[in-house]
Design a protein around this nucleic acid. Structure first.
Lengths: 192, 192
DNA sequence: AAAAAGTCTTGATAAATGTCAAGTATAAAT
DNA sequence: ATTTATACTTGACATTTATCAAGACTTTTT
């Protein structure tokens, strides 16, 4: 599984043999069965996660017990609760596996060590952060501008590969609508 | 006006005289009258902006001509369209002044130069990016979880200082509701 | 293979929010 | 200071989306 991560890294930066060995030495491979948790609310997030295979999601649960999906992560995506990781505060989120998955974990201190010792690694992370921020801003804009139907169509366009892998009720919770509404939207679109 | 920026920098990092002079040499002070634009849709964003005084907002306009505010920025806040700045693509957003303002601008290349020559500057920017990303994730979660009234109350709590300075229709567009709905929410709260 | 659990869809109804129109209040321009 | 423009509020009504309940379909477990 480390090879998946290595391929990812090598598609972005050049690494020496020593650097690769250093990265591998701090990488923890974790196998997650479907429904298994990587993080639960009130826990403190201690590791950055990189999805080698499978599918995970991050969500919060409100007062009424309703889940709200804030993020999906599949192969070659990062996942963690950066807020909790950064500040050492309890997380408000759950992260669990939608499919059987392999996640590569790097502890906070090891991650900082890598950033310090491998400048390209630090720059890569920085670039990812910026792209992530752009994507998140884009999502907020879509939320403000689009109707429920438009949001759904936009999701299909933005993530064509994962759209079929996501259970509908989770997709609904990501879009901020109920499963019933999503069901009606889909019906409505199919008759066009 | 450069002093406002310098104070901000010195509250976060230590700088030598030379470094300060370097930063000052690439800083452009721009005065903006109320309603004046810093960026318009279809333009390419070329500078990072730091608000020394005043108040700005960033928004998009949809097909129906309705404005959707994605961001407010007051003293000591950064503002730009990072997506456009990073990729050199035309912006989807407008940035204009809600109040007469002074904005300190640094061009993309100068910003990169500063990051390269002043490591603490780069680290500071990185930290700001991370905090910004956390705040944006938080906003998405609130959008998914909260009712219109809860979003409004949350805004008051999160930004007590600027709540009174923001025209209501812009606040409404930030919350993703109409001015009429905001008006009714306020009335409803005041009678409690 | 059958039973159980969970998921998706559909219908009836309720609640929240939007739209349009008019009036009031406030700020800007002359 | 008066006029003009803009912003805010309120009411009546329309639309969208949520809620609740039931049935159909899938997947998982036994």
């Amino acid at each position: 599984m480390f090879n998946v991560f290595l391929h990812y890294l090598q598609s972005k930066i050049n690494l020496t043999e020593d650097e690769i060995r250093l990265i591998e030495s701090v990488s923890i491979i974790k196998k997650l069965k479907k429904h298994q948790f990587l993080l639960s609310e009130a826990e403190i997030c201690t590791h950055s996660g990189f999805v080698c295979s499978g599918f995970l999601r991050k969500y919060s649960i409100d007062d009424k017990g309703i889940e709200h999906t804030v993020y999906f992560a599949t192969e070659n995506w990062w996942i963690s609760d950066r807020q909790s990781l950064m500040d050492g505060t309890p997380s408000k989120y759950y992260i669990d596996a939608i499919e059987d998955s392999f996640v590569l974990l790097i502890s906070k201190t090891d991650f900082e060590k890598l950033s310090e010792k491998i400048p390209q690694f630090k720059d890569m992370v920085n670039t990812i952060l910026q792209r992530s921020l752009n994507a998140t801003h884009e999502r907020i804009n879509t939320t403000l501008i689009a109707t429920a139907e438009e949001k759904y169509i936009q999701f299909l366009k933005s993530f064509p590969k994962i759209a079929n892998r996501v259970p509908r009720r989770m997709l609904a919770s990501y879009l901020g609508i109920t499963p019933e509404t999503l069901s009606r939207i889909r019906k409505n679109i199919s008759t066009k």
